[in-house]
Amino acid sequence: MVAVGLMLTASFFIYEATSSRRSRSLAKEVITAAVASVFLGFGSLFVLLASGVYV
């Protein structure tokens, strides 16, 4: 899950860096950022639980 979150984060940054200001879509940005956030959040939670840190 962490790897998927990092890939989505990277694709978000690449999209922001390569697209022009006029061709950007707010919906695509918000959806990509939200999905990446969910994957990184749950992924980091599961990594902590797997390593014995109970949160």
Rank of each mutant, 00 (worst) to 15 (best):
L48F: 07
L8F: 12
L26G: 05
Y54E: 03
Y15P: 07
S51F: 04
T32F: 02
F39D: 01
F12D: 07
S23Q: 13
F12W: 06
V30R: 07
S44R: 01
G43A: 03
A34C: 05
G52W: 00
R24S: 06
V2E: 13
E16I: 12
I14E: 05
S20D: 13
V47G: 03
F13A: 10
T18N: 08
G5T: 01
G41P: 00
V35H: 00
F39H: 00
L45N: 04
F42P: 00
A17T: 07
V55P: 01
L26I: 15
S51M: 08
S44L: 09
S23E: 13
S11V: 11
V30P: 00
F13P: 02
S11Y: 11
L45S: 05
G52A: 01
T18R: 13
A27T: 14
G41F: 14
V2L: 15
A17I: 10
V30G: 05
G41R: 06
M1H: 08
S51K: 03
T9S: 11
A33R: 05
F42T: 02
E16A: 13
T18V: 14
S20E: 14
V35K: 00
A36W: 03
L26H: 09
V4K: 05
L6Q: 07
L8A: 04
R24H: 06
S20M: 05
I14L: 10
A3P: 11
Y54T: 05
S51C: 08
R24Y: 07
T32R: 06
I31F: 06
A34T: 12
I14A: 13
A50F: 04
S44K: 02
A36P: 00
A3T: 12
R21N: 09
V55G: 06
S37V: 07
S19Y: 08
F46V: 05
M1V: 14
F13M: 13
V4N: 06
S44H: 08
E29W: 04
A33T: 10
S44D: 03
F12G: 04
S11D: 14
V2D: 12
S19G: 08
R21V: 15
S44T: 11
V38P: 00
A10G: 15
R21W: 12
V47S: 09
S19F: 10
S20T: 14
S11L: 12
E16D: 15
L48Y: 08
I31Y: 04
A36N: 01
K28L: 06
M7G: 15
I14K: 09
R21G: 06
L48W: 08
F39E: 00
V30L: 14
L40N: 02
G52Y: 00
L49F: 09
V53G: 01
A10Y: 10
T18Q: 10
A50K: 10
A3S: 15
L45M: 09
S37P: 02
V35I: 12
G52F: 03
K28F: 15
V38E: 02
V35C: 07
V53A: 02
A3Q: 12
L49G: 02
Y15Q: 06
V4L: 13
S11C: 14
F46Q: 08
L40I: 04
A3Y: 13
Y15F: 04
M1F: 11
V30A: 09
A33H: 07
S44A: 12
S20V: 14
I14M: 12
V38C: 06
F46Y: 13
F39T: 02
L48E: 05
A34N: 02
A10N: 08
V2P: 09
V30K: 13
T9W: 04
V55L: 04
S44F: 10
V35T: 11
F12R: 09
F12E: 11
S51A: 10
